[in-house]
Design a protein around this nucleic acid. Structure first.
Lengths: 274, 274
DNA sequence: CAAATAGTGTCTCTAAGACAATATCAC
DNA sequence: GTGATATTGTCTTAGAGACACTATTTG
């Protein structure tokens, strides 16, 4: 009778064919726009980090940052590592949004991708000072449903505009994924990954779970509301937002001053919401 | 200048180390218990399919059905294939519940597991007639929080009882995963996978998404309510359940007869809930 | 004071939970 | 009729959305 030890020493995983495994990260940030008047608050834009591919395949096209899983790390650690390598920022939180394993999705061969959303505050990106590489840029994000039921994903940076068209496929369990009708110049199946990531991000923003990660330690309730509105692409009445968020935040003694209007109290996230 | 075609023909994925990739499936079913009186409705039990391992490692221990990803399929197709191979039933729906990629989780080597929940109706299992293999059994499931905040997972079949103890680790995005304190005789990290799968299943059952898959085409509302109560481990007042479910179901003309009490109308799932 | 945002109070409506009451069958 | 489940109606209450109103600052 063979013992477990004997079995393991004779076992060869190499006898089976194996795929390469990657983590790809949709890193989002919210960038404050220009101040149009001395007393008006700035508009916000949701931005996504893309990398210009320097090598084949899809050379010169834009893609999500990502890389191969290493033997000594979990897939989450891989996603965090890749994000850090590209932005110099350690994200507060990442969320898995799906596994993309279509056999022919990568021309290099059998590669399955684990997609993650990560959320980064504009403040930390500025501090890290990694906002100027030619091959890594933050793109403005627009994502909405067209009249024909298809979804339009538009990513813009300076005079570069990527327009992808996607078809929503609803599966069971309230899950949705997207089929690419037009990749809009994005590499691989990354248009579908981005759409899936955005959908997941929006669903999470509903219960105020991710919105804090876009902001510094302390923030005004209006800034927090703007974050949620930017992500969800909706507007809420301030009175109602304040009531809904009240159990998740706590006051500080600080105020924002010099803004041309009534100063806003700064809040911080409450650790135990209930 | 190298063309993309030239690049691809020279590219060798084999130069990088690659993991083996598996899909493991937590297949759930609801089994009707014994009828204690001619007029009382039977109790339900939530059951989970486990396979007794015939070879090393963890020889003789119980594990989730699963297997290696093949080059011509997606990870979802792999999960469906594995479920079908073990039960002879094609599940209506599967849901991914997580990727388990701890480097040392499998003694055979670098193997990352993609966990899925699948939901099967007792009716289809009986029809498939695959309910009698010695090495594949449906275990009764109990999963609840102890006083010390840890979670107790108990799987019982005849005189076999597996008792695992888990610690809940709450991560961001409302996600939770479990650390194994005592595997209770389950192979690999499958105790944690089962706990994660159960948590995901319960969350889905809240919005009536998966509960239909446990039942045949037509069903009584009481049966549907029992399914939800069995999964969620709660009780609801019938009047309130009927109101909540009403937009998801539609009446048929059929009734259940011969039950010793007022006959119940049969319903079927409505395709477009709104 | 004007412009702009910060912040509060309250009305309505919906949906969930509790509970009471009635309906209908097999025996 | 009795025991059991099926089914309907209504009361209460919590929470979301709408809206009106007050407060505070800078130029």
């Amino acid at each position: 009778m063979e013992t477990e030890k004997e079995f393991l020493s004779a076992y060869r995983l190499e006898d089976y064919e194996r795929p390469s495994v990657t983590a790809d990260v949709a890193a989002f940030m919210i960038r404050a726009g220009e101040q149009t008047s001395y007393r008006k608050n700035p508009e916000n834009r949701l931005q996504l980090l893309l990398i210009k591919r320097g090598g084949h395949p899809f050379k010169g096209m834009w893609a999500l940052p990502g890389g191969f899983l290493q033997p000594d790390e979990t897939i989450e650690e891989c996603a965090l590592r890749e994000t850090f390598e590209e932005t110099n920022v350690q994200p507060v939180s990442i969320m898995p949004v799906g596994v993309f394993s279509q056999p022919k999705r990568d021309p290099r061969g059998w590669i399955i991708s684990h997609a993650f959303v990560s959320v980064i505050s504009a403040e930390s990106v500025e501090q890290a000072g990694c906002d100027d590489a030619d091959d890594a840029q933050w793109f403005d994000v627009a994502f909405s449903e067209a009249e024909d039921g298809r979804f339009l994903l538009t990513l813009t940076y300076a005079d570069t505009a990527l327009r992808a068209v996607l078809e929503k496929v609803s599966t069971r369990f309230g899950r949705t994924f997207f089929r690419i009708a037009d990749s809009g110049g994005l590499a691989f199946d990354h248009a579908a990954i981005i759409a899936t990531a955005l959908t997941a991000l929006r669903r999470q923003a509903k219960n105020f779970d991710t919105i804090f990660d876009f902001l510094p330690e302390t923030f005004t309730l209006t800034a927090l509301q703007k974050v949620q509105e930017t992500i969800m692409n909706v507007t809420v009445l301030p009175a109602n937002f304040r009531r809904m968020i009240s159990s998740y935040v706590e006051e500080t003694d600080e105020f924002v001053r010099g803004s041309g209007h009534r100063p806003a109290k700064l809040y911080r996230r409450k650790q135990s919401p209930l």
